[in-house]
């Protein structure tokens, strides 16, 4: 509870603390990861399996009572070209988006990005003539 929740909470005073040795263990794969991303910002998902934990309520703001696992479902692209991971809470279906960090698992990121193209709901041959 203690280190896990603290690691996910985006406290502004800890962002630039270089000497911070905070760690949290992933709720899905159990990997112990440092709470600090390579670019110095606070991490909110596991870099190995990209799963997160539902600790912030984005509808009403403030901490969430859910605390359940959030699985990555989609890649969103900002206008700047940066990628965001869209997480979905497996318990209450809440959606959040978080920026990717540089040491995130690239294989899972690419797999999520090309996932819609694997099973298109319409034939893609028609686009060849456009």
């Amino acid at each position: 509870m203690s280190s896990d929740n603290l690691a996910h909470q985006n406290t502004a005073n800890n962002v630039n603390n270089v000497l911070s040795t905070d760690t949290f263990s992933c709720v899905w794969c159990g990997l112990t990861v440092s709470a600090q991303a390579p670019d110095g910002s606070r991490r909110n998902h596991c870099p190995s399996c990209l799963h997160s934990k539902h600790v912030i309520d984005h509808v009403e703001g403030g901490p969430s009572e859910c605390g359940s696992r959030m699985s990555p479902i989609a890649i969103a692209v900002l206008r700047t070209g940066d990628w965001m991971i869209v997480h979905r809470c497996v318990r209450c279906d809440e959606l959040t988006s978080n920026p990717v960090s540089t040491d995130d698992n690239q294989l899972i990121l690419m797999r999520m990005a090309v996932r819609p193209l694997a099973q298109p709901p319409f034939p893609l041959e028609a686009f060849g003539t456009l």
């Binding site: 479902i73 989609a74 890649i75 969103a76 692209v77 869209v86 988006s97 996932r115 819609p116 694997a118 099973q119």
Partner: peptide, 9 residues
């Protein structure tokens, strides 16, 4: 914003 795929495709 983006597309996602359910487990049933």
């Amino acid at each position: 914003l983006s597309l996602t795929v359910r487990p049933d495709g």
